[in-house]
């Protein structure tokens, strides 16, 4: 009973003390704030520890435990990645095609040539003839001996034309010949195919000025190609072995191994009427 009395007495005293404290802190709010600052200073280490601990737990939970649906999500995402990859590849193809067409269109605007944009659909399977097959033919006014170009550079000439396809003999074929001249010195000759990646610039006289790096363009004398189309660049100039002409090698400007789109000039009036003929041009 005595203990109860003591407790009641203590409770009353401490309650009165708390009322006094409350009244004092009402009059002096700074005291309460001071207490808060003191408390914060004491508990900051604990709070930081809790914070770090919670961050670790949260990381563990979200990074390891909460992965129930990860497998399904992974499968879905993999499918999506595959789909997007094929889409990217398709768009990349379209982009390259658009770039090639833009180049052709630019040439058409600059030179004013009438022509047909074609896609390469095949190559000569035998490997003996340097030629490609395009998807346009006589129905699109494509005839034999019409020049095929890409980006202002000579690719070859139409060798044979079917109704809906045509065969283009490439510049590098052994039977190919294009009248050309050195852009810098105006030295004339004929660019002949060799069956390799390079051509020979033949019939250039000994006294002509030709240097490695010179650009060879069409001279227009063959009546097949308009004047001024780039053929290639001189990569080797050899001395004549007692003859009249120099031995010059020319690398084509166009990568003939990776053709996809060509522009066949159909509106060149001189086509097929004069100049150096290709040796095997017949309509199919």
């Amino acid at each position: 009973m005595l203990r109860h009395h003591r407790i009641v007495t203590s409770v009353v005293l401490f309650f009165l003390l708390s009322l006094v404290l409350t009244a004092y802190s009402v009059r002096n709010p700074a005291v309460g704030q001071l207490g808060s600052v003191f408390f914060q200073t004491l508990t900051v280490p604990f709070q930081r520890t809790f914070q770090v601990g919670w961050a670790q737990v949260s990381h563990f939970w979200s990074g390891y435990v909460w992965l129930i649906a990860a497998e399904d999500e992974n499968t879905i995402l993999k499918k999506e990645v595959l789909s997007l990859r094929s889409e990217v590849a398709r768009l990349r193809e379209l982009s390259q095609e658009a770039a090639a067409l833009r180049e052709i269109l630019q040439l058409r605007t600059q030179t004013g040539y009438e022509g047909v944009v074609t896609s390469v659909i095949g190559e000569d399977p035998s490997g003996w003839v340097e030629s490609v097959t395009i998807d346009r033919g006589r129905s699109d006014r494509i005839r034999a001996r019409m020049p095929a170009i890409l980006g202002g550079s000579v690719v070859g000439q139409v060798h044979a034309s079917a109704l809906r396809s045509a065969q283009v003999l490439l510049l590098t074929d052994r039977t190919s010949g294009v009248a050309g001249l050195v852009q810098r010195s105006r030295a004339r000759g004929i660019v002949l195919g060799t069956g390799t990646d390079e051509c020979t610039f033949a019939y250039v006289r000994e006294e002509e000025d030709v240097l490695v790096g010179d650009i060879v363009v069409t001279s227009g004398l063959d009546g097949v190609f308009p004047k001024g189309l780039e053929i290639g660049r001189v990569v080797e100039v050899g001395e004549s072995s007692g003859g009249m002409f120099r031995e010059i090698r020319v690398a084509p400007s166009v990568d003939l191994k990776h053709l996809e789109t060509l522009f066949v000039i159909t509106g060149f009036e001189d086509s097929g009427e004069k100049g150096v003929p290709s040796q095997g041009s017949e309509e199919q």
């Binding site: 407790i7 009641v8 203590s10 409770v11 401490f14 309650f15 003390l17 708390s18 009322l19 006094v20 404290l21 409350t22 009244a23 004092y24 802190s25 009402v26 005291v31 309460g32 704030q33 207490g35 808060s36 003191f38 408390f39 914060q40 508990t43």
Partner: peptide, 23 residues
Amino acid sequence: FLVDMSSGGLLGPWAGSYVICFG
């Protein structure tokens, strides 16, 4: 009193309240 200090408001109300509860 600790709770009062942590709250940053008045000093005393929680102390008084807990004393009554304890009693």
